[in-house]
């Protein structure tokens, strides 16, 4: 599946919720289910410190694809982190650099990407792209 196909799938999944409570319950569930972040990667240089919550992001290049693992101390943030990882992980640097993230807005969680929220998500997305740039440069 392409990045856009996965984004569409997520939008589809979320479209069944017309109540914010249900949507957030689902997000919390996704957040709780996110695993795969290795404790050895819980390092200061993987830490994106928002004022409100923390996000850890680790990236590895294998066979030309970047694999991201991430974590957050706040579950709602972690839910969104899980979705971002699902969309972005296992892609080539070019795919990531050319992608446009549209799903967060479409599922009505855009407010969490506002810089004023200071939850680490905006910086995380920036960091995902920076890794892609760096790995691309390394490959060239």
């Amino acid at each position: 599946m392409t990045i856009n196909e996965i984004q569409e799938e997520i939008v589809e999944e979320f479209s069944v919720f017309d109540d914010w409570m249900d949507k957030y319950s689902y997000l919390i569930e996704i957040g709780n289910d996110l695993d795969g972040f290795q404790e050895e990667n819980r390092l200061d240089n993987n830490l994106i410190e928002g004022c409100q919550s923390k996000v850890w992001l680790h990236a590895e290049l294998t066979d030309g694809k970047i694999f991201y693992t991430a974590d957050s101390d706040a579950i709602i943030v972690k839910g969104i982190v899980a979705l971002l990882v699902k969309v972005m992980s296992g892609r080539t640097p070019d795919e990531i650099l050319e992608s446009e993230l549209t799903f967060v807005e479409k599922i009505g969680l855009k407010e969490h990407l506002s810089p004023t929220r200071s939850n680490g998500l905006v910086a995380m997305i920036k960091q995902i792209r920076l890794y892609a740039l760096a790995f691309k440069a390394k490959q060239a």
């Binding site: 914010w20 409570m21 957030y24 919550s53 706040a74 709602i76």
Partner: peptide
């Protein structure tokens, strides 16, 4: 429960 989670949901 992380304060950010509590605050976000109360805000709603």
């Amino acid at each position: 429960i992380h304060p950010f989670d509590m605050g976000t949901l109360l805000d709603k």
